[in-house]
Design a protein around this nucleic acid. Structure first.
Lengths: 199, 199
DNA sequence: TGAATACTAGAGTGACTGCTCTAGGAAAGG
DNA sequence: CCTTTCCTAGAGCAGTCACTCTAGTATTCA
C-alpha cells in the first residue's frame, strides 16, 4: 500500500475552491464565471479543480449545501429557548448579518441562472425546507401564545417571512444605496408588522 | 429613390422578436437562451434578428425599456385621483397582475446575469426610478392625510414597498406552490401593514 | 418597367470554454 | 531504499455560440 488521503488537507483544499467559486459566481454569474477564473482565484490549475469537483455545477451545489447546513445548525442551536418571539427576531437579524457578505446577493442571482437544473432545484428545495421547518414550530408557538396573528396558517406566514427576506436580499445588489446594516432595523420592523396580530 | 421603410410593419416585427426573446430569456436565462432559439421561436432567420438588433443584449434592453414605459404610462393614468390610499393599493394589485405572466419572474432572474453590464445597470436604474418617482407623491400625500406612517421618510417607504414586491415576484418561480393569484390578497395586506401608521 | 434599396435566410467563422489527458512530483507505507 | 497511490499542472480538444457575409427576394419610387 501507499499514500492514504489526508482528510484535513483535502477538506481545506476543497473549501478553498468553494470559496473562490463563490467569489467568482457572485461577481460574474454562473455562466460568465469561467472555470479558469475560479482556478486563478483559488491559485490552482484546472487539473486540481476537476480532481475535486467533476463539474462546475457541482461547486455551485456545494456552496448551496454549505448554506443549508449553516441554517440547520443555527436552528439546532436555538433548541430549548423559551422566548419564541425573540427567536423569530433573531432569525431575521441573523439572516441580515449573513447578507452583509456582499457575495451572498450576487451568488443568489447566479443560482437563478441554473434553477432549471434538476439537481439545483432539489438543493434549493432542501434549503428552503430547512428554513421553513426551522421557523415553523416557533411561529406556531408564538401563535399559541398570542404573540403572532392566527388568521393565517403558520406555514403560510413562514413563507411570507421568506418573501420579505428574499426581497431584502435582492435589493442589496442594485446601487440603490440600500445597505444591509442601515436597513436592518426596518427589516425587523417589517417582519414584526407582518406577523403582528390583527388589530 | 426606392423602397422606404414601413414603420408599422417594422415595429410589429421588432415587437415579435422582443416577445420571442422574452419567452426564451425567461425559460433559459440570458446566456443559455441562444440567438438561434430566439430566432426559431420568432420564426425568423438569424439575418433578420441581427437586422433588427445589433446584439443579443440589445433585445434584453428593449424588453426592459418596454417595462419602464408601461410603468410610466400606468402612473400617468392615475393623475388626478383623490383616493391616495386607493392608488397605492391599486399599484400593488396592478403589479401582481403583471406578475401573473409566468415569464416575468424568469425574465427578472435572467436580467440578474447581466446586471454588471453598464447599459443594463442604467436601464434598471431608470426602471426603478420610474416606480419610485411614480409612487413617491402618493405616499407623501397619504402621509399628509394621516393614512400612512410618517416615522419613516416617504422615499424609504417606497423602497420598502419594492422590497416586498420583489420578494413576492422572486417566490413565483420556485415550485413552492406560491401562486400570484392565491397570494394577491396577502400581498396587499402585507403592504398595508408595512405602511400603516405606528400603533 | 426598371432601378434602388429594404428585408430575409442560412451557411460559415472566429473565438471561447468546460473538461480531458498526460506527465510528472510528493507523500505514505513496506 | 522502492513502490504505490495521491495530487497537481497546464496544454489540448471537442463542442458551442454570437455574429458576419453573401446571395437572393420583395417592395416602393420614378
Amino acid at each position: 500500500m501507499a499514500r492514504t488521503i489526508d482528510p484535513v488537507r483535502h477538506e481545506a483544499r476543497r473549501t478553498a475552491i468553494i470559496d473562490a467559486a463563490l467569489t467568482c459566481f457572485a461577481a460574474d454569474g454562473f455562466d460568465r464565471a469561467t472555470t479558469a477564473a475560479i482556478c486563478r482565484t483559488a491559485g490552482i490549475g484546472s487539473g486540481t479543480f476537476f480532481h475535486y469537483f467533476p463539474t462546475k455545477l457541482d461547486v455551485l451545489l456545494a456552496v448551496l449545501e454549505l448554506g443549508t447546513a449553516e441554517t440547520v445548525a443555527w436552528f439546532a442551536a436555538q433548541q430549548g429557548r423559551t422566548d419564541v418571539g425573540g427567536v423569530l427576531v433573531d432569525h431575521v437579524v441573523h439572516s441580515a448579518a449573513e447578507f452583509a457578505d456582499p457575495r451572498v446577493a450576487g451568488f443568489v442571482r447566479a443560482v437563478g441562472a441554473v434553477m432549471n437544473d434538476e439537481r439545483v432545484a432539489a438543493a434549493l428545495a432542501r434549503d428552503e425546507a430547512a428554513v421553513l421547518d426551522g421557523l415553523l414550530p416557533w411561529v406556531e408557538a408564538a401563535q399559541a401564545a398570542g404573540e403572532v396573528r392566527d388568521d393565517v396558517p403558520a406555514a403560510r406566514l413562514c413563507a411570507w417571512v421568506l418573501v420579505v427576506l428574499d426581497g431584502f436580499l435582492g435589493r442589496l445588489a442594485g446601487e440603490s444605496g440600500f445597505a444591509a446594516a442601515a436597513e436592518r432595523d426596518m427589516l425587523v420592523d417589517t417582519v414584526r408588522r407582518l406577523l403582528a396580530p390583527a388589530g
